[in-house]
Simulated scan of single mutants.
Amino acid sequence: MSKLKNKILKDYLLNKCSTREIESLRQWLEESEDHASQLFKIEELYHLGKFHMNQDAEHIEKAEQNLFKAIDNSKSIKFKSPHFLRYAAVAIIILCTCSYVGYFAYHTNKAFSMIEVSATAKSVKRVLLPDGTNVWLNHSSTLRYPQKFTKEKRDVELKGEAYFEVTKNPHQPFIVKSDAMTIEVLGTKFNFNTKHSNNYEELSLLEGVVQIHGNNDKSTITIIPGQKIILNKQTQQITIQRVDARMESLWHENMISFKRSNIQKIVAILERLYNIHINIDSNINQRMTYSGEMRRYEQIDSTLKALCYSMPICYKRKGEYIYLYQINK
């Protein structure tokens, strides 16, 4: 992949990239450091005009049109040649003569300009951060991060649940902040749930090492892969457990995980995932448990059919109501 499509470049500048375009851009950037350097220069040219404090909206729009016209006049963007960069620079500079003050204002704004991304109540959303870190947001979760990380650290804020695969950088710690905890890593994989319940936050570690700081406590705790830390937000009490961390994060692969779960716990999980009420018949054995993982289907009927195949239970629907009952053998 030596060329970058013009549409992807324009969508990137306008923050309109689709998930597929972001993935293509990420792969292209990983091919060479020169790709990242040249893309950064074009982005600088674009934003220098937008952040110049003396430009009105009409001039900014016209400058954008000139830049995008220059992009369209090239069959594809080949960064081995500087001609396109010079053309793009002229297109911007014609209408936006940016001083050092404008340049400084752009970088200051970019470092502190926050982007907020949320997953809907029915879907998992994947986010690619500026450093190449991948984040999967669980349902109704929100992530805030700067348009550009500082040289010293990579700060993000989380409300809800997210699975992180953090790009390694020993000189730039990756920090996740929630209402109750601050997580610091250099490069690792972990699942962080800030709303496990009203009073608890949980973090499970798959790879690497994580340091946890309670926001109301100066102490620091370090956990290793296979451990989960649970923080009581009211009492600040911390508990560490051994867990199958992969099972804790299966949701980001669109899977549902059950571990020695009785029917009450299974139903509670399904009700939360599908936002629906399920009635449990009194004849179901409450001590019966199920362990395993299954695909989370878009429709709950498909998920229930898979569950009934694994357990001696069945279900029926009456309008919007779902009833579970045990099969008597």
Rank of each mutant, 00 (worst) to 15 (best):
H59R: 14
H171V: 06
V124T: 01
A63H: 01
K305L: 13
R126A: 08
A306L: 12
D72N: 08
G49C: 15
L186V: 04
N66K: 12
T303R: 10
E43K: 14
L250Y: 13
L67V: 09
N54H: 02
Y323N: 07
M294K: 09
K151H: 12
W136P: 01
Y315S: 07
T239W: 02
E165S: 11
A162P: 04
L158H: 01
R144Y: 08
K189Y: 05
V117N: 02
D72M: 04
K195S: 04
K259S: 08
T120I: 05
C98A: 02
A70N: 09
E165M: 07
W251V: 00
L143Y: 02
A180N: 05
M181E: 08
H196V: 13
F174D: 03
V176Q: 08
I42M: 12
K10N: 11
M247L: 11
H171K: 13
N254T: 09
L304Q: 05
K168H: 15
F192N: 07
R86W: 10
N254R: 14
V243L: 00
L9K: 11
Y274M: 05
T167Q: 07
V210C: 15
S18D: 10
H35R: 14
K318R: 09
A306H: 08
E116Y: 10
G319L: 00
Q172K: 13
S81A: 10
N254G: 08
S140I: 03
L85K: 12
N198F: 11
E271W: 00
V101Q: 14
